[in-house]
Simulated scan of single mutants.
Amino acid sequence: MAELCVRSVLVTGANRGIGLGLVRQLLGLPNPPQWVFAGCRDPKGQRAQELRNLASKHPNLVIVPLEVTDPTSIKAAAAKVEEQLGGSGLNLLINNAGIAKPKLLENETLENMTQVYTTNTIGPLLVSQAFLPLLKKAAQGSPGSALSCSKAAIINISSSAGSIEEVYLWERGLVVSYRCSKAALNMLTKCQSLGYRDHGVLCAALHPGWVQTDMGGSAGHTPPVTVEASVRGMLKVISSLCEKDTGTFLDWEGKVVPW
């Protein structure tokens, strides 16, 4: 397995589930990042206890207050990360924060659609915009012109539930607002890959699998993929991404997911 080698990484929604799993495994790499920034909506809350425990053992883990739907919070988070980096750039941004609101199609609401879209699609847009200057700085400071996640990258954690061709697990979870938000996130990823390529920033969407998290198990079924296996697979995929992969939609095993 090619080992991911980055100086700095930011993970949003890092206090539980896949986000916490990403932080754990990044810290456990043979050559861990110099800085792992863990974005968390409520760093002092009960749901962030495990993250705080990790931070007490790893001085390279910095918990950053970050509400991805709040522009003021995003701006403050970017300023904190910039200060911590001390003049260097951010190599890897993983937009992981997301929510799901299970509803039947006939019962879907304006409130649900708005809340889920704001978190799952607009959030990654705003966070990526705020951290773009740091990503560009990392790209400029990296040798060579080829794109890679060691240089500068935005990885959006999507879902094949948002694949218009696959409509993954339709019978087990209609979650219309979630599906629509992830389909929109996929288009955002494609747009980012085109818009940020000249800045040296690779952009890709990843489907983590149907994972054993609070969100994944909310439909009343036990998902087949553990957080550990999903994250290990995604980090392997991330480590191997290169120029040809920018703007693609892949799963946690590196297989192409249809749009």
Rank of each mutant, 00 (worst) to 15 (best):
T69A: 13
I157W: 01
I164K: 04
R197W: 13
S73T: 14
L66E: 05
V68F: 04
G98C: 05
E108Q: 11
G144Y: 12
V11H: 06
T118Y: 01
I157T: 07
G39M: 09
S218K: 13
K44C: 11
V23S: 02
M187G: 02
Q192Y: 12
W259R: 03
S73P: 04
L132R: 14
V36E: 00
N53V: 07
C203W: 11
L66T: 03
G209T: 12
D245R: 15
S158T: 01
L10R: 01
G247D: 09
A161C: 15
R232P: 00
N31V: 15
Q192A: 05
R16N: 00
T119H: 07
N15V: 03
D42E: 10
A183T: 14
N107T: 06
C5M: 04
W259F: 13
G141M: 04
K137M: 10
E243R: 07
T213S: 08
L93D: 03
G233M: 03
A97H: 03
M215Q: 02
P208G: 06
P30T: 06
S88L: 04
C242H: 15
N15M: 04
A229Q: 10
A153I: 15
L126S: 08
K75A: 15
V256M: 11
Q49L: 08
P208S: 08
D70I: 04
E50M: 07
M215C: 03
P59F: 12
T121W: 00
C180I: 12
S230T: 10
A183K: 08
N96S: 10
S145N: 12
V64M: 02
S218L: 10
V225M: 13
S56N: 15
G216N: 07
S150Q: 15
E82Q: 14
P102D: 07
K136H: 01
V127T: 05
Q46F: 06
P224H: 13
V201N: 08
M1I: 14
Q140V: 00
L235S: 05
L85C: 03
L26T: 05
T119V: 15
G144V: 10
H58T: 02
L92S: 09
A183M: 03
D42M: 06
R7V: 11
A184R: 09
Y196R: 00
A146S: 13
G123K: 01
D42C: 04
A48W: 11
E171Y: 04
Y196M: 04
P43S: 02
R7H: 15
I18D: 00
G247T: 09
V68E: 08
Q192K: 04
Q84M: 05
G173D: 09
S159N: 08
A152K: 10
N112H: 10
L250V: 14
K255C: 09
K255G: 10
P102Y: 00
